[in-house]
Write a protein that binds this DNA or RNA. Structure first.
Lengths: 177, 177
DNA sequence: AAATTACGTCAGCCATGTTGACTTATTTCG
DNA sequence: CGAAATAAGTCAACATGGCTGACGTAATTT
């Protein structure tokens, strides 16, 4: 039961031993990703509940805070949800004064997104909570190990999405700064 | 960035750059975790849809496959969901012949969970899909780097949960095998 | 014998995702 | 210039997967 999984026959351009070693670690990591993410996302929940928000609001607030002037279309492409799903949470964030929308200067069809002071404060508080967990997980890690973690997460992302993530988060296409 | 905002109203002045400088490596990883998990969980979706299953079914199937004879209470504690939520997906998995429940020998109140052959086949297929992604992300990583990734994910988990995860996944409390 | 435990289930609610259809304003292009 | 494309918003209906609360049954523990 639960032995080494096969790496898949279409993994090209890698030596058999390298793939095998990678596959051995893969099963553990599948489970670790589940547990890690399960706990990671819970950090912000109580802080969000104060305003009647959920995780969907958190994601929107986060990306607008990190990318002032973000266009709605770009946000949809980041979150990979539909316009209608975004519409609901975005409206609530605007109604409660955490986000404002401004007409684009160059293109007046656009409604560029910005956080308010209030929104910025909440976004930072949420980032502080999650950042604390991440920082604790990295305290004993050497710089090379931190890079290895970042590179791994970066390479888990769909290849065609990596360019976008690099631009948003500000590190290179190889996962390094 | 801030110059785009022109006449400042209540739009927060210091956003992305200041935050980034303040928080270091943790901030990148918060975003990377979002993107990585977003893509990671999508791998299995089409395979699950064939049987009318969703991600909740996947999680149940996975942990039962990895832990034959799992008790319902233990599964609840792993997934951190309620008995009622589990009940729905578990019933569907049983009805469709992917999981069977057996009365416990020592304690006949227990309904121990096992996958059927069919369930095992689906579980492995899903693991293959996700494992392939993980394996590809690790092909160029050295053993020490793979350990660093595992250790990081392990330490993201709530401290009081780590013992349970160690026992389930079979590596030590330090995140190493 | 009573209390606790393991499990299941009914009923209703909420958050967040989906499709499909349609509108409005604006920009781009032939 | 006029047609087509684009950016954004909205209505309606529905699916998934969480939640709480209340109860029931069988088996075990005290």
């Amino acid at each position: 039961m639960a032995d080494v999984i096969s790496a898949g026959d279409d993994v090209a351009a890698a030596s058999a031993p390298a793939l095998e070693a990678a596959s051995g670690a893969a099963y553990d990591i599948i489970e670790l990703l589940f547990f890690a993410y399960r706990d990671f996302v819970r950090d912000a929940d109580e802080a969000l509940a104060v305003y009647g928000f959920g995780r969907a609001h958190h994601r929107v607030l986060h990306f607008v805070d990190r990318n002032p002037g973000l266009r709605v279309t770009e946000l949809l492409d980041i979150l990979k949800i539909t316009k209608q799903s975004l519409g609901r949470v975005l409206r609530e964030l605007v109604d409660k004064g955490f986000i404002v929308q401004r007409e684009g200067e160059a293109d007046r069809r656009q409604r560029l997104l910005y956080v308010t002071d209030r929104g910025d404060r909440l976004a930072r508080e949420l980032a502080r909570l999650q950042g604390r967990r991440v920082a604790r997980a990295l305290v004993d890690a050497e710089p090379a190990e931190r890079d290895a973690v970042k590179r791994f997460l970066f390479e888990i992302i769909d290849p065609e999405e990596r360019g976008k993530v690099s631009r948003l988060s500000g590190f290179g296409a190889d996962g390094r700064r």
